[in-house]
Design a binder for these strands. Structure first.
Ligand code: FES
Ligand code: FES
Lengths: 140, 140
DNA sequence: ATATACCCGACTAAAATAGTCAAGTTTTTG
DNA sequence: CAAAAACTTGACTATTTTAGTCGGGTATAT
């Protein structure tokens, strides 16, 4: 059960922005250098973050991205859903009539996986970006 | 963030065994028919479950598999680790000196992912196979 | 004997992932 | 104005992972 790198880098990059926030925008180039993430990849990621209103962009020289919400208000779950990183640990859709094995009744494990999803989602719901910055020993 | 089908089927098959437990062994053929899981795939899964001492086998006619522990004692985490389904949401290894981005210091998000892993693992640690069987409306 | 059911390694098709590439557009600054 | 910085966007690709299948076993109850 792994998280994909897009989501991981997204959280990482936004945490970087939160640390290096100033009045001006933060450029992807800077994030790329500080965090060691491919610039091209970051572009792809920030495209989605922008579309989902997590960041806004400033074009041109000295441009970059700015967090729409403050780190204290930005939930990690918001970031993940911007990247379509749904926490859906199994394929069976909650609303669908079809169960995981094609039968009409839910399988015996169904409720269990539902509980798992809820458990994981609540973690992401309750964590804010600012929580990542607290008592970090490691320098960025 | 998805769980693979091997793990899902393993839990499903063991839950089936728990329900249809009797004095004799449960054959994969029966599980396959009841749960709609490919017999060949089940064989592969049970091979690992056996190697990791989750089930024991009885060969020959009327053979099959038997749960080593009672459902009340069998933790879901035991099942998952039998299938190498580690809950390691990101690639960075805890013990390794190397961080996720190849630098020597841990990245800013490291502790967060660690917490996430702990959060998920504790869920699996605290759930027993018998918990899946409680108040299920759906028949197998 | 023989049918049933476990045993085991190797193989493969399909999907997902991680990331690159190319070709832009916008804005600031000298 | 010209040039550089930096965002915009869709398409493309190599690699890896997943989800199985296949073939050829071995053990045992009847
Ligand atoms: S029916 Fe939903 S997980 Fe099986
Ligand atoms: S250093 Fe461990 S997750 Fe980045």
């Amino acid at each position: 059960m792994k998280l994909n790198t897009k989501s991981r880098y997204a959280v990482m990059a936004l945490a970087d922005m939160a640390v290096f926030s100033s009045d001006n925008a933060v450029s992807l180039r800077d994030i790329s250098l500080r965090q060691g993430i491919s610039l091209l990849y970051l572009e792809q990621i920030f495209l989605r973050l922008k579309k989902n209103n997590i960041v806004k962009s400033v074009r041109g020289i000295n441009g970059g991205y700015i967090l729409v919400k403050s780190p204290k208000e930005l939930k990690i779950s918001d970031i993940l859903s911007a990247l379509d990183q749904k926490v859906k640990t199994i394929g069976c859709k909650k609303d669908s009539k079809k169960s995981c094995n094609g039968k009409s009744t839910k399988c015996i494990t169904h409720n269990f996986w539902d509980e798992l999803d809820i458990h994981i989602n609540s973690f992401f719901e309750n964590k804010k970006l600012s929580d990542l910055l607290k008592n970090r020993e490691a320098r960025i």
